[in-house]
Design a protein around this nucleic acid. Sequence first.
DNA 1: CCGTATCCTCATCGATACTG
DNA 2: CAGTATCGATGAGGATACGG
Lengths: 138, 138
Amino acid sequence: MSPTLDHTSGGCIAARQILDRVGDKWSIYIVMMLSEGPVRFNQLKRSIEGISQRMLTLTLRSLERDGLVTRTVFPTVPQSVEYALTDLGSTLLEPVSALAQWAQVNSTQIQRARADFDAGAGKADEQEVAGVTRIRFG
Amino acid sequence: MSPTLDHTSGGCIAARQILDRVGDKWSIYIVMMLSEGPVRFNQLKRSIEGISQRMLTLTLRSLERDGLVTRTVFPTVPQSVEYALTDLGSTLLEPVSALAQWAQVNSTQIQRARADFDAGAGKADEQEVAGVTRIRFG
DNA sequence: CCGTATCCTCATCGATACTG
DNA sequence: CAGTATCGATGAGGATACGG
């Protein structure tokens, strides 16, 4: 393990804040769709399976507010609006991709752990119980 | 920017799954508290500001189910229970810390973006509007 | 000390309908 | 095409009380 992992109080707060930002239901989908260049509103809506118009608007506004995406209106008729990652938004892709990669690498292990846990649920004699290796003093 | 960022369909799914896992309100706090060694239930409860007993239990169960933490019961009187990261849980700390570091580095920039956005809200003449640089065709 | 059970609240999000 | 407005369901999560 790396000895330089940041698990200080500040690190916790920072982690939570960014997870609040990008941990919602749709943000990463949008960020990843925009990773290759600007995309129009309805293009996003079509390519992100299951997103509602409402949530697409809300999530884009929120990303725009945080300086992660830009919104550009083209006054054509009918109008079209393009969304694109800012430089800041682009840099976010790196740690997010690292997380995604971790997930892909360890997904089978997690699935097995879940299956094992669910299989053993309720069986008291399968629970891990340590012997009394220490006496309480206090 | 790195040319090897994974924004494939599989990468999206993987990202969402891990964010569902670790993006909830309390998981990172717990994982980070356990990063330096085993901690007992009530120690966790005391050190994680604002967590309820209910949510601590639920989140720990969920982390245990996914093979990220272990639960060890010491049959002392009264009983004590220690939680610790598994090897898998430890490896998760790295991408999570990367995210936290990104958040810390860019937090001021985000705060300013928010302030700017909120200040300009409602003022139509401040919105970014592109000229008609292309004609719609179909 | 370490939980589980119950109730209650509030934010999130989908569905639908309507505007420039 | 790109939104906004409104409503309703759902579920996450806090408070509290109780049990092993």
